[in-house]
Nucleic acid binder design. Structure first.
Lengths: 229, 229, 229, 229
DNA sequence: CATGAATGAGATTTCATTCAT
DNA sequence: TATGAATGAAATCTCATTCAT
């Protein structure tokens, strides 16, 4: 068998970029196959390095996993809080903006997979689950609950328990995100699965207006729906 | 608790129950730790048999996994279809009944974990994912979509795309189910997590009536909420 | 390449015998190559089992090592104590008997290698070194020191510090034991290396009588040397 | 402590010292942990250079090991031979001087560890063991044997086989040296371990005079014991 | 049927060595 | 020269599966 002249395996020194490359590779694989079913060598290969290099940056597969979760969470929540302060319009519009924003940041980026892996691995990594809950779940829910609370206070919303309402509001978005990384990624396009955008808009409409047909039917003026779509 | 009157030779009784005991053990562990992280010996131990015995009933861990999924799905959907035919009241009440029923059958039994493991393992077992989609997801959604369709047709519901509406309707329930088997099972009870029952009832109320406060506020008579609780 | 018909790998079930077989194999290899340079698979192979079987009995290479040391030490010291009580003759004869006995039990059996591996690995396994010191070194030395003490008390020996004398007495024996497992095992028979038996007898003679020629030269009657050889 | 007067460009000075610094670091670590358990990076770090630099001076860990052994042996034997020629007093004094000298050069300097590592690694490096035997063991023993031979010839010593006598003479010293680098270095100071100096002096006394009490008890005048201590 | 000791392929991790900078 | 990031062979250890009892 004639050897290729030099396939240039080309050892590259890129100390700066490696951690991020490894985290990206690991995130993708952990989301796709789960933590236990992902082999460390695969992560390295996908990041374009050898097995050994992975261990230069993360001392074990488990630490790599934790780093993936920690890194992916970042400062996203903080941005939401800021936006909340600036907002001028109705609370209904703010809720709508938040859910749409969430979808765009979680549903349409690989970071959304984080939620899937936390779901799968929470019981294997309780400390990490706690971290995720503290850093992501609780602040996110608190943010949304605060908006609901204001809406109720101003009379814009009916009297509901804000924390309970949050559970209802986020359910469909999370469902979409999770589906996208599991069944939705299997090439299963069984029949009439509606696309995410439509689901989100309908959720907003139903959530604010209700599913039931009203006698006079005119829309409550406080909610205007999506600007242009 | 009065003991069963037939003590019957333990060994004899056990033999027939073995497959089910193994499936139960496997389901619990797969839900808790995931497929790859569950050792076959653990499954056997939890079922009270030895490692070798497991292989007497299932030729491999993978086949055991498939059996767990297939078995847990069973005939639940069929029951729903039957119920649908018998139903007399409004479509709103039927939707409410279906979601509550679903919660009771999925959320409050170990079978609910099936959805979690399918989410986690779908991409590792695409044929199984297809099977799950065909046997569970599609029929369930179709059932609910049919109810919505009828409600729209009769004028009880406003004009919505039934398939899209289904996505909105099941989101919160699925979210509750999944949460229960992941973060919720870690002893993380961070702050104001509302209990599932309240979430479900609020979802139904919001879903039908909308979150927005209405000037005259009287409830649409078609939806009556939960009978007594 | 024509396959041998069936080389009969013959899985044997010998739960009882395994631990000892593994310990024997491990002792031999640790003595020969040291702990770090011995591969666990080699140990298994020498014991006639597979890699995996080793880990069925010892959870790690390190634990195997500890077991080897602990097991090889056993009750040898206790036997010595017993013998000491029974002894009738002079203390010089008793010392001679003890050193000869020690040589026969340590120098001529694989257990002697234990001393070599403790020497090599003491600083890598300090707790084990402590154990060895407590269980072997200290009792052995105390035993010999007691004999010396009695000899001094009875006037048979000159006034010496018993603990110091013990160090002098055991030096040559240990040297022989160690040499046997290191340079002596390399096929190095450089020139005039005297055999161990002769060294031991000469040591006894010198130790008791001294190297210096005495004018009148008659032997001190208390020490009779080796019975017949 | 007055500083050396020549500050000299650090880099320059270092360059020439590197090999020795590496050998010193390697010796210390090999003695402490053994050859296999010592990582080359540790050696480099202790010598204050990087991993790569080590390989600039020694092509492999094994060659480094050989260099350590070769270098530590050096010309010590030659010095002994020279001294032997110059000596005027009795052979007993010469033997005493040699053993004390040996203790001071082996026992009280890191070079003594060489004997420990040769013991541990002899069977893994037979050629090196041969080298050590040829260059160190055989000449040392021959030297001592020659002294004994002269003592016997002159009638100062009783009739003994010189080579056998040598084994007896060096045993306790070697034991002390080895102990110091193994159990003795573990912080194990179990009870009445006498200090090395005392052991050596007692050995000399016993070796020459014998342990047994003599009726008239007067010392043989040929041996004078340690000059001042 | 049931068991659990035994197996060995394969996963994780280490570390001597190389080589681009 | 000196560095240390990168490599990959090799070691430790795991666990799905087999099979003698």
């Amino acid at each position: 068998m004639p050897r290729a002249p030099i396939p240039a395996p080309m050892r590259q020194r890129r100390k700066e970029a490696r951690p991020q490359e490894l985290l990206d590779a690991a995130l993708a694989l952990f989301v796709e196959k789960g933590f236990a079913a992902t082999r460390s060598e695969e992560v390295a290969a996908r990041a374009g390095v050898s097995k050994g290099t992975l261990y230069l940056y993360y001392p074990s597969k488990e630490e790599l996993f934790k780093a993936v979760v920690r890194e992916s969470i970042g400062t996203k929540i903080a941005e939401g809080v800021e936006e909340l302060g600036k907002h001028q319009g109705s609370m209904a519009d703010l809720v709508a903006w938040m859910l749409r924003e969430w979808w765009e940041r979680m549903g349409l980026t690989p970071a959304g997979g984080i939620h899937k892996i936390m779901l799968s691995e929470a019981r294997n990594f309780p400390e990490l689950a706690k971290f995720y809950d503290d850093e992501v779940i609780v602040p996110s829910c608190a943010l949304l609950a605060e908006v609901v609370r204001r809406g109720v206070a101003s009379g814009e919303f009916r009297e509901v328990d804000p924390d309970t309402a949050v559970m209802v509001l986020i359910g469909p978005v999370l469902h979409l995100v999770l589906h996208q990384h599991s069944l939705g990624a299997c090439g299963i396009d069984a029949g009439p699965k509606p696309e995410a955008g439509k689901v989100l808009e309908l959720q907003l409409e139903l959530m604010f207006e209700g599913l039931l047909n009203r006698p006079r039917g005119e829309r409550t003026p406080a909610f205007k729906g999506q600007p242009s779509a």
